[in-house]
Each structure stands twice: as C-alpha cells, then as structure tokens.
Design a protein around this nucleic acid. Sequence first.
DNA 1: CTGAAAGCGCTTACAG
DNA 2: CTGAAAGCGCTTACAG
Lengths: 333, 333
Amino acid sequence: MPARGRMPRQTDIARIAGVSQAAVSVVLGGNRTVRLAESTRRRVLEVAEELGYVPHPAATRLASSRTKLLGLYTFRAAFPTDEADSYHPILSGVEDEAAALGQDLVLFTGAGGPLALEEAAIHRTRMADGCLFFGRHVPEGPVSRLVGSGFPLVYIGRRPELGGRIPYIGADYVTASEQVLQRLIDLGHREIRYVRESDEAPSSEDRQLGVLRVAPRTGVVRLGEPELAVGTVRGWVADDVTAVVVEGTDTGAAYRAVRAAIDAAGLSTPDDLSLAVLGGPPGVSGFEVPMREMGRAAVRLLVDLVTDRPSTPQQLLWCPPVTGSDVGPPRSR
Amino acid sequence: MPARGRMPRQTDIARIAGVSQAAVSVVLGGNRTVRLAESTRRRVLEVAEELGYVPHPAATRLASSRTKLLGLYTFRAAFPTDEADSYHPILSGVEDEAAALGQDLVLFTGAGGPLALEEAAIHRTRMADGCLFFGRHVPEGPVSRLVGSGFPLVYIGRRPELGGRIPYIGADYVTASEQVLQRLIDLGHREIRYVRESDEAPSSEDRQLGVLRVAPRTGVVRLGEPELAVGTVRGWVADDVTAVVVEGTDTGAAYRAVRAAIDAAGLSTPDDLSLAVLGGPPGVSGFEVPMREMGRAAVRLLVDLVTDRPSTPQQLLWCPPVTGSDVGPPRSR
DNA sequence: CTGAAAGCGCTTACAG
DNA sequence: CTGAAAGCGCTTACAG
C-alpha cells in the first residue's frame, strides 16, 4: 500500500499487480494500439480501482505535451464588478464548449490593470495550448509576436489588424444590417435615419456599411452625447422620417438615447416612427448578436488550431433577425 | 535559436547563455538560496526575455508546486446562463485579489455536468498550486483525499464536513442574525416570526441559531412552497406579531414570498409589520453578506496555505448590518 | 560559487 | 504480445 496521505501512482499499481509501470499506463490510458493480455488488463484495473488511483494532471499533461489548458484573456475583469455585463453570454458559451471538449480555462488576471501588467499577462498566455482574446483592443506588439511565433490564438469579434492575420470569430453585422434595412424598405419606409455611437470599431463600421448598402440615402447621425435632443426627433418627423435604426452596442447607450428622446417627444413606436436596433437588447426589433454561439465557435476554432486540424481561421456568424413590436409600416399621411 | 513555433525552454536559454539548464532554473525561479555570479544572472535574464520564455506550467507543477495558478472550482458554471447570478460578487472578489497577488486562475470546466465529469474535474484541480471550492456540495471522497494528501484547498462558505478539517472562509451569520434580532427587540418587538427555506445548510442553521439565541420564543416557519398564504400573514397580525425576519438566500425565494404575501394582505412595512432579511438584497433591512470580501479573503488564505505561511484556516467574516426602511418600532395598539 | 544528476508521474516509441 | 528505456520541462538536493 502507498504511504498514507500520498496519492497512489502508477508504480504503486504496478508493484501490487505485478506488472511494469508502463503497462499500467497503457491500460489506464486506454491505449488501444498496444495490446495486453486480458488478465493483465483486468488485474491492473482492479488494483487501480481499489487504490482509488487518479492520474496526476500535471504529469499527464507534461508527458503528452498538451496542457489541455485554454487561455481566456479578457482585457478587463472576467467577473466585472458591474452587475450588468452584457458580454456574459459569450463567456458562458466559452465555458460550455470548453467543458464539452475537455479543456480547462485559465483566466489571466491583471488584464484590466496597468499596461505593464497587461503586457506581462498577455505574455503568460503562452503557458496554455492556445488563447482566446476577447476585447476590441489589439496590442499590436505583443499580439503580433504571439501570432508570429505560431502560438494559436483566436479573437472573439472581427479584428482586421496585423494585415488580417488574426484568427477570429465575429458576427456578420453587414448582412444582418442589410436585412433589417431591407425589411424596412419592404414595409414602405423611404426616409430613414441611422443613429450610431461615435466610437470607431469594426462592429460599428460593419453595421453602417450594411445600412448604407441597402439604403444609401439614409442620414447617419453620430451620437456625441448620451442624450439626444427632443428637437432632433421632432425634426425627423417633420422631415417625413418614418423609421429610425440604431446601432446596438454593449452599453446600449445609443438605443436608450433614441428611445428616451422618442418618448420625451410624445411619439410612439411603431405608429409615429418605426424603431430597429442592430444587435440590441432581447425582444427589440432588429437582429440578435449570437454571443453564446460566438463563444462556443471560438473555442472550437482554437482547439482546431491547437491540434493542427484544418479550419477556417476567420469566421462571421449569422445573426438571427428579431421581429419585435417597434417596427411596422409607415404611418400613411 | 529554438525552432520556430516551438516554445522556448530552459535548455534553449542555457545553450545561448552558455550556462547549465539548472542555473537557468535557479535564476528564473528566483531561488535566493543558491548564489550565482551577477553576470550569469543578468545574461540568463536577458536571453530569457529575448526568447520570450514562459515556464511550462505542468513541468513546474510536477517538479514543485509554484505555478502561480490557483484553481477555482464552482460546482456549477462560473458563467451561468442565468443572468441573475447572485454569487457574482464572490467571483469578482476572487479575481480581484488573485490579480493583486499575481496569481492566475484556472477554471475547471465540467463542474456543472454529470457526476463522472464532476469527479474528474475535481481531480484535475491538482494541476493548480491550490484550489478554491465554491458551493455547498462537499463530495466527501474526492475532497477528503485532496485534503488528506495535503493539497491546499479553501472552501468559500463554512463547511463543517470531514470532521472540521476543511479550510474555509465563511460569513458570521450567527452574530449578524443575533444583532438583527437584538435591534428588533430594542425597538420593542416581542412577537416575532422567522421564515426560512426548507433546505438544510450551514448558512441556514447558523442564521436560525442566531435568531433563537436572542429571541428563543420566535416562531419558526419553514417555507414548503414558493408561495406564502395570505391567511398566514393575516394570522400573524391577529396573533400580535409585529416583526417578521426572513432567511436571505441566493435565490431570495423566502424574502420574495413574504414580501408578496404582505402586499397581498394589504399590509405595509414597517407600519403593520417590520420586515428584516438575514443577508438579503441590497438596501433591505437586516444584514449584508460580504461576498466580495469573502472571495478576496479566500484567495489570501489559499495563497497562505500554498506558501506555507501561518494562517487561520477557518474564518468567519463580519456581516455589516443594513438599516433599511422596512424596520421600525411596533405599531402601538 | 557552479554544474551534473536525480526525480516529479506520466506517455510513447522501441527492443525483445 | 510485453517490458525496459527515454523523455516531457522543470526543481532541488548534492557533489565538486
């Protein structure tokens, strides 16, 4: 018997079962290529069971040269203090799929902190087999080195940086936005306004691209402040605008601003104005960002890269349209 | 130079710097007992930096136990699908303190799944230097072996199992509950009811203990269903009950049930009835569970255990009282 | 003060 | 069909 308090090892089993340690490894590892006598196999299994053998994860991973550890780098806290974490479904999807693929997740802390800490944390991601990056930010230096050295990495969200060499799982905002606009036009809307936040980001550019492709005459309003003047909304109606489309983002600021201004102007949707959000809160007309699926797909892609399986390193996922109650035909005048 | 795509190892550094691999280990491991020439040390550091060396966690862990990786085992998803995750502040505290102490976090996935997966995940925990366990569940077999083998582990929440050998950071529900009851009594309340959920758990037992210690005559109502009959509440008032104390739990079911029944009975707080919750939603009279601080303290304790520093392996944290607007003096009759 | 050796607990070619 | 050996990438006694 192994010493009390020490976890049993393969050598303990080998000694008791009267076989070599390597044979134990073969039996317990479920190695099908090596053939052993059935009696040996059974004996090993019995002793292992009896001793309550559990493989040491570090040894297993060292010997097989895969840590089965996937990094998850978030550029902010993974568990933010702020209760309302709109990105939560992405992380939930990541966790789910990682579990399904038998991978553990390492969270690199210090991501939200000072630059030096951040750089160090990015560097530490190398301890994992590969790493998921989640956030708009692409620190060109560190990330470029990572990619250049062949370290498997996947961004969540489209990242055109580094000459398009960054693998990612994004959402197909262009197509989804086109479809929303097409639907408005099919309903009869002609005078449309698009309200976007002032930040520049691929996810913003993609939406606007989709909007203008279908309805090139759409007026684009960049939101400078968290509020939208009631006068602006009244002006739209005076200009025969019948539909407003809003960029949906993590904070939902643009949507809330428009919603508030419409209410304050004493107008109602969809009677006075149709209102659609490009990737907004659940239930609001427009489309939904498949966050959970993005998380899952990112894990699958990363594992494919880690195991050298053929894969499509840059993918845009379909965004399901949402038919809410804020969109209707234009009011006949 | 190491082959492109392969992670640099200590031997790579050793070769380039012209020293032995062991010397590299000593320098990079920050080993203070072994003395090396300052020039050697500097050279090693330079080469390591240049190659972008990161230690292999499995190798480090196998050879010693200083991976600076702390496990976080949650017995459910760390990123639950359910948006309303009342335990979130605990994880937030864990992440925060881990960052402050320079530890990364590994999430062992598969925790919420089938038993076999769960057990396997518990065992994988040994990949880290130590592990935080979060959840009421104590799988005696695996956890007992972990503790028995000297693996550092800390539960979040008081865990009396295994003959009290489990290190934990809990909340001092007994004292906090006593204080709430004492305040009610000081205000003049004499006829009090305590509503608790029917689950048994240390956190429930502790609260009830505190209640009955200060007000032994308090009637205890175990909530069998998610609803509380309006008649029950009316009966309390008829019996001259002036204050109701409710167990606060993750779901908040008991509190919501009582609140709803009081409203449905057409009664108001604190005029007709004072209402306190033992660890409830923010702002409600009673006390607050210091979740964030529990997370932080658990990380500190775990790191102390990992580094063999003297520590108090079982701690109960103080719960700050909350003076809300639902408690007042009893209505004079 | 420094280097060569053994060992952590496994897996996987490679001989017999 | 089976066992002995080498090796995964580190740390840490232990000789020089």
